[in-house]
Design a binder for these strands. Structure first.
Lengths: 222, 222, 222, 222
DNA sequence: GATGAATGAGCGTTCATTCAT
DNA sequence: TATGAATGAACGCTCATTCAT
């Protein structure tokens, strides 16, 4: 009898897992080809189901797109926000945890294609873009801003425009993720990812660190 | 008869200008909607010609795409390379000229959409991506590398991994251009472009500048 | 055990009633939307069962259609034929009973949609149409012909072409039933059904009557 | 040169004629199979064009349906209304012209399928049904009502409920048209159309007539 | 050269039918 | 018996491409 209870009925198990199998297949293909160029036949085939099955779980191709974005990224951002709660005394280490954490939890996983996808399709799906902006980008940048502000407050970092700096800091990480899912598929990059990341962090840390000497910026006159 | 010869014949002028009018229209729409979601009807309409006329100048939609990339970007990169030839003694100023020059000549113009377009479509058009990589990205990064190398050689910049640093330096500029043609169309950004750019350049210049003190980077252990 | 036998078992009752519940649901929807536009999902939902259950009772959508026609109309026509057996001396009253009986037993009930359904689908289901023609239309008209022939034989009605007249006489009644299940759902008719029916019967009786004298119309009491 | 002017360019001629060719093909198939069961492939094939061509002239299948109804019937009803303007002294003859005129101009032509089509699809297209009701049915019945009213006013017809009588009078004619496009395609009717029509008119004329005297039926000469 | 009507392959979506549970 | 998840053929509609004018 216990066997009967414990057996989740393969059918049932499949049904529960289906949406995620489908969004995973769709994410991969949307990232690879873009939304419009992805055929639902392919998505279904990649998930190992027939085309009609897609419509048992998603009302339309557009609904599938929305689910891909929503289910893919929300859990990740919530994980990230938990970082702020742990009492870390060192702003440098906090910043490092946030930036490298992003890379390891998102950029370097299958979710790393979402920025490329969202970037490519933002203008075709303004509502989804707005949702993504508010839910993911804004909250992600807020993490970085918090770390920066703490560092500035403690005198570890120079006083900087926190908002603009956060935007600048995330750019090289996004760049790496975007590259992977675009040119990375057909062109070899020169250096290793590790070199890129350590060079990046070394550069920004030096840039942020409170130092004595400084030079003004003068516009280039062509 | 001489009149016929000397008259530049508006018709003729139009005919010569057609390809560029068409690629300009196509660029705008490809950037906005992506390659697959752009209809040739729309391209033709935006250029003020009929759909069939497109095929007098381009063999196919794909050929139009290639022309958009090719005609759009090659002149710009050649302009950029000229910067290296002018004898500028100051590596900082050279770097500034290259980076801000990119922004002013490309990022901040209608050509600024090409990175987004190329990024979105790289995997759908690997040959075009490879061409773009070799012709645009590689040569563009080479400019930055040269400036960096000069600065390091003269002791103005710390000794850095020039290749990786060039990649990192271009990222925030690309980021701005990508943003403009994606989320920028539907979401408001916080700060001004000027603040972003000066914060960016200030940060990297501080990061590059040869300074005494330095701390090691330790991995974050979550 | 006797309890088991005597208990009519709700389950059993349901099971026996299922086919009729299903054909009733199908009839309503076929009449409303037509055969092709009716989804089996809707039929099942209206009958309160799942879509798969339909296939326990009917082999296909077409089989369901045939059952709808067959089960719906055959009992009614047999009832009608019983009218001829009762010894009614008055041909006028017999005709009235047949015509108004049709209206009350068929036209004015849920079965009244069958003529519209059959009319709409006759060319898509020629065999069903032929069956319906032979089983329903022919036998129904035969009733009217018999009444007419008796009336002519007794000199109550003028000598008329009995076959053609039967066709003409049924038309206004059919018309009313067809209207109800088509325009009646979206457009208001002017007069009342009672006025229509009495005007109809008054007109045809005057048209049929042999002599100048005239009698009022009395309702047929079944 | 006159040849050049007079040649209407085959292409152009086709283009102008296309909508009517398409609605004619669609009418035939909609009548035969119903709206839902008709495939646009078939419509296109019957009109001798490809499927895509349909969409150059009609936005959707539903738009095609509306055009079929609208273009098919409006000219006919306007013709009918012209009958009232000619000064005919004889109400009987006027009624005959209207009723038989309907049969000859509509019922007995390819337009005769429209009543069946509209009847079948009225509940699926309520707006079209309402339009048809107001534009065709209402105006058609108004013709009959006018003829009846004149006859009653002159004492040629008995005093009857004009509205209800008009409904009754049109029913046998509609019946014939409906039959032709439903059972007529698969079942043989007994008598001839002529017998049916003369029996019909003889019956209703007797039913309407005020006095004992009676006249033969003479065909209406349009 | 320029047009735009015509094409037809292809895709998103639906739904009758099946079958494991 | 009853379910409903899964299927896949079919259909409405689109759009890159062609070609007669």
């Amino acid at each position: 009898m216990s066997a009967v209870v414990s057996r989740p009925a393969r059918r049932q198990r499949r049904k529960d897992a289906r949406p995620q199998e489908l969004t995973a297949a769709a994410l991969a293909l949307f990232v690879e080809k873009g939304f419009a160029a992805t055929k639902l036949d392919e998505v279904a085939a990649r998930a190992g189901v027939s085309k009609g099955t897609l419509y048992l779980y998603f009302d339309s191709k557009e609904a599938l797109f929305k689910a891909v974005i929503q289910e893919g990224i929300v859990p990740a951002i919530e994980e990230g926000e938990a970082l702020l709660d742990q009492p870390s005394d060192d702003p440098v280490q906090l910043l490092q945890c946030i930036l490298f954490g992003w890379w390891e939890r998102i950029g370097n996983t299958e979710l790393g294609g979402i920025p490329k996808l969202m970037l490519s399709e933002a203008r075709n799906f303004p509502e989804v873009a707005a949702y993504y902006h508010d839910t993911v980008i804004h909250r992600g940048l807020a993490l970085i801003r918090t770390a920066l502000a703490r560092g500035v407050a403690r005198g570890v970092f120079r006083p900087v425009d926190v908002d603009a700096t956060a935007d600048v800091l995330i750019a090289p990480l996004l760049h790496l993720a975007l590259w992977r899912h675009s040119f990375g598929a057909c062109c070899v990059r020169g250096g290793s990812v590790e070199t890129y990341l350590s060079t990046y962090f070394d550069l920004i840390l030096n840039g942020l660190r409170a130092a004595p000497g400084r030079a003004g910026v003068s516009r280039c006159e062509p």
